[in-house]
Design a protein around this nucleic acid. Structure first.
Lengths: 143, 143
DNA sequence: TGGTGTAGTGGGAAATTGTGGATAAGTAGT
DNA sequence: ACTACTTATCCACAATTTCCCACTACACCA
């Protein structure tokens, strides 16, 4: 399971190192796709398979469900780690997530998210304020 | 069950010893994360898993729930004890809790908190003054 | 009181990891 | 077929992390 926050860099060849801790769980291959809020998501192949199963189950009649499925699936690429544990980020995904040099990599239990560093920083600050009353939120969960 | 207050030091390699009494309960691994009032919290993996279970139950479709989960999970790291019972405190957590050399480690029944020593001292002094009021408030809760 | 074990602190050497280039291999266009 | 260009493979460096051991302090116990 993935947890934690790391800052890494994409070099001019679009290579991005994945934290070694994550690599151990991921194995040799993974799936990279678009996520919500303009981030990218890395799924272990197994998780990806589960997800596509779920997507297939969605009612194709509903327009928004259909759109969601299309975006999720068409945006996906499977990526292989090179000898040093890096993946290649295709241009269109790089653009989608507005990635520049520095990116934040987040471990979120069953998936990994990739954010442009500043955007993540902003998002985090903003969200922490919005949540504001974190204490009561935690209490609801019984933590 | 964790109880007691201890003062320990973080060395320049970011290593922090955990009181051996606590270690016995914790086992070989634990999870370190941000807590309220700028302290850090150590959870036994079992407690942590309960927590993530709850988080996974939240609807990923809702923006605020999504943000909450992101903050909670990305703020955590899992830590392993080295042969001498120390953990590594990542920079961003060290910064979050304003840790310098001396830290106070508190046993709080099902979790452990880590504070910058002076801040804990202040907090304690301040809170103890209010303890009179608090007593009456607690009484309302039947304690 | 000296011995023994445990616990906290510190430091050095070795292995791993992240980053950046260099070189080779493939692709496409003319 | 030859150039221009992208993509893959390999290597090198620096920084960090990991592993191992030494030192000190204190408690416990014959």
């Amino acid at each position: 399971m993935f947890i934690g926050e790391y800052v890494y860099t994409i070099d001019h060849k679009k290579r991005l190192s994945i934290p070694s801790k994550f690599r151990k769980t991921l194995g040799k291959k993974a799936v990279l796709t678009t996520g919500l809020d303009n981030c990218l998501v890395v799924y272990p192949i197994l998780e990806w398979q589960k997800l596509t199963k779920k997507l297939e189950g969605l009612p194709n009649g509903q327009t928004d469900a259909r759109g969601f499925v299309r975006i999720m699936l068409s945006g996906a690429v499977d990526v292989t780690f090179d000898k040093l544990g890096r993946i290649l980020v295709p241009d269109y995904l790089k653009d989608y997530a507005l990635l520049k040099k520095n990116v934040s990599i987040l471990g979120l239990s069953n998936r990994i998210e990739i954010w442009e560093q500043k955007r993540w920083q902003d998002y985090k600050d903003r969200t922490q304020k919005d949540i504001g009353d974190m204490a009561s939120r935690l209490q609801q969960l019984g933590i």
